[in-house]
Design a protein around this nucleic acid. Structure first.
Length: 595
RNA sequence: GUCCUCGUAGUUCAACGGAUAGAACAACAGUUUCCUAAACUGUAGAUGCAGGUUCGAUUCCUGCCGGGGGCACCA
């Protein structure tokens, strides 16, 4: 049983014994004691005045006395107004640490539930940019977190490989490409195709201007620009299965996939299954028919099919055009069923930007109306855009922060900083290269993950990404320092097992703080899983590293004369390292042993 | 027009309805005979505005102001 639970149980007993009140122990929530007061766990008694017939302060006093007198866990208490601050006995912490270090603590018990996480889901007409990185890191981290929290997880990538966007690149390539290939040009396939997408838009723009100059309205110009018409025709040809168009499409897409795979590998994300829009875009019509039969949807006179969601304040939603063709929502309904068929899940998570909030609200309501088993478990993990100081990134105009380029720059910065500091002279070239990558990716991932997903975030290329302070590098540095401590303990043959530190009977403040934070791993993981928020883990990891940094600076380890204390500090260091590594793994961040 | 979302130090981010709103960067001032100074310590600095609910509101509700996004037989 966790310390938290033991305290809650004790509190329930205290309520019973002192006030003859039966409290549900889960509701007796504890919060961390603020560091200006003594203690680790705080119970707030303001809400219980009516029940106990005492004022909050008296309530806290009475509960505190009971706990101190009757519970082996509680060393002391202190009351400030309605706050009951509890201090646990060092022996309790010490045995907690002893148990912890032998047990399996990284994962919560299995829940017997499945969760599918769809993320990344790129369009195949351009390379990944900074916004995609946020998506990829979020999706991967949430998958890891849910798995650690006891879910069976499936990571899915739904590739948007068809549609007008890829036709634009195809048209531009056909006109201007001269058969260029990734091999000859030395470009990654996704970049090559992305360049043609930009090219398309340049030509499109100039054609619009010409047409406007010839007296067309802007709308007409946009409609009639020859290159756009060509793209539309190509889309129709693709849908008709035109052999040449399909062959071109396959070739260009295969180049893009190679490029994506390289990037995915570089940034350390992976998938368990792939869906291709070209294979799913026709799905969903049967669901519309089913909905019509059930009377959930209705047909307008012209033949189009709609769902009336006015009761849900979502207005009316088109599901099938008058000519019987699908819209985006139609295929998403079909894909939702397909996913469930492949992986019958209780939770279906979509990592998609917040501009689609409405879409996913509607999707969920529609599937609920259709009575789908998985419908209540649909969750749109909506995240805010990554903006530049001058505003939104626009692929069309090529004003994006490219993922591959950014990573390369980060690696270069990591290299420069590391060389300045000169701490890895013993490294081989390969080891050094690996370290630069770890630092660069760690900085990038932590930077993007520490912000609450739904908030938009600003990226300023001028400032780059932090390598100091509240940064991924700080966490890695803490881990590297810990590793050095452990190497030294090993070398000097200093034991730090449970027996070696069992005798410790008092703590310094920074040790208590560290113990407390280490004990919060499960709670934090549960909270992160419940809210699908890697930011919760990221912030926890930073707090933990900071607490360790403080202890490291305040207290000597090897010069400590009390052998038990020395052993305990090493054991604390070791476990802090383990927790940091465990959390970092959830976020996809690697922790170096030396830096 | 309507719906959703965000608004916290100069800047970028924190804070299950709880104590004197935490960090980091930037600024200023300190700390290496001692385990990695990519660190540690200190100083200064913030809840958009107006109401309401509550013992208690950055957090919940209403209105306003400001930023972002959505809503069309587009994807």
């Amino acid at each position: 049983m966790s310390l938290e639970l033991q305290i809650q149980k004790a509190l329930a007993e205290a309520f019973k014994a002192t006030f003859d009140l039966d409290m549900e122990q889960e509701k007796l929530v504890l919060q961390p004691t603020r560091k200006e007061f003594v203690g680790t766990h705080t119970f707030v008694t303001f809400p219980y005045g009516k029940l106990t017939q005492k004022n909050p302060q008296q309530t806290a006093e009475l509960l505190g006395h009971y706990l101190k007198d009757s519970h082996s866990l509680i060393a002391d208490f202190q009351v400030v107004k309605g706050f009951l601050n509890l201090s646990l006995k060092p022996s309790a912490w010490v045995s907690w640490l002893a148990q912890r270090t032998v047990g399996e603590w990284q994962k919560l018990p299995l829940r017997g539930e499945k969760a599918m996480i769809e993320y990344s889901s790129p369009n195949t007409n351009k390379p990944l940019h900074l916004g995609h990185l946020r998506n990829n890191f979020l999706g991967f981290a949430v998958a890891q977190i849910l798995e650690a929290a006891g879910f069976e997880v499936c990571k899915a990538n739904l590739i948007n490989d068809r549609g007008i966007h890829i036709c634009k690149s195809m048209v531009a390539y056909r006109q201007f490409g001269n058969g260029e290939t990734p091999e000859q040009s030395g470009k990654k396939g996704d970049h090559l195709i992305g360049d043609y997408y930009v090219k398309f838009n340049e030509v499109y723009k100039s054609q619009i201007q010409t047409l406007i100059a010839e007296g067309n309205t802007e709308k007409e110009a946009e409609q009639n620009a020859p290159i756009m018409q060509e793209a539309r025709e190509m889309l129709l040809a693709w849908e008709a299965g035109d052999a040449q168009v399909v062959a071109l499409w396959k070739k260009l897409n295969s180049w893009v996939y190679e490029g994506f795979e390289k990037t995915y590998k570089d940034i350390g994300v992976s998938f368990d299954t792939y869906y291709y829009e070209s294979e799913t875009y026709l799905l969903g019509k049967e669901i519309v028919e089913e909905g019509l039969k059930k009377g959930v949807f209705f047909r307008k006179e012209e033949g189009s099919v709609w769902a009336d969601l006015k009761a849900e304040k979502l207005d009316e939603k088109l599901l099938l055009r008058g000519d019987g063709t699908s819209v985006y929502m139609t295929q998403d309904m079909g894909t939702a069923d397909l996913k469930y068929k492949d992986f019958p899940m209780q939770h279906s998570i979509y990592v998609v930007g917040n501009e689609q909030d409405y879409h996913f609200k509607v999707l969920k309501v529609l599937m609920q109306k259709m009575g789908r088993a998985y419908a209540d478990g649909i969750f749109h993990l909506s995240y805010g855009m990554v903006e530049l100081p001058e505003g939104k990134m626009k692929s069309r105009e090529g004003t994006v922060v490219d993922a591959d380029e950014l990573l390369a720059e980060m690696i270069q910065i990591a290299k420069n900083r590391t060389e300045e500091l000169g701490k890895i002279e013993n490294f081989s070239v390969q080891e050094a290269e690996q370290l630069y990558r770890q630092l660069a990716l760690g900085a990038l991932k932590y930077y993007l993950l520490r912000v609450e997903p739904k908030k938009k975030m600003l990226f300023n290329p001028e400032d780059s990404i932090d390598f100091q302070g509240n940064s991924g590098v700080y966490l890695q540095y803490t881990h590297a320092k810990i590793s050095a401590i452990l190497r030294k303990a090993e070398r000097d043959n200093i034991a730090y097992d449970a027996e070696a530190y069992a005798a410790v009977s008092e703590f310094e403040a920074s040790e208590s703080e560290l113990f407390y934070l280490l004990s919060q791993y499960e709670n934090t993981l549960r909270e992160a899983a419940d809210s699908y928020s890697p930011a919760v883990m990221a912030n926890y990891m930073y707090e933990l590293a900071r607490a360790y940094g403080k202890m490291y600076a305040d207290l000597p380890i090897f010069p400590e004369s009390d052998a038990a204390k020395k052993a305990m500090r090493i054991a604390l260091s070791a476990h802090t390292g383990e927790v940091l590594r465990a959390v970092a793994r959830l976020l996809g961040i690697e922790m170096p042993e030396q830096m």
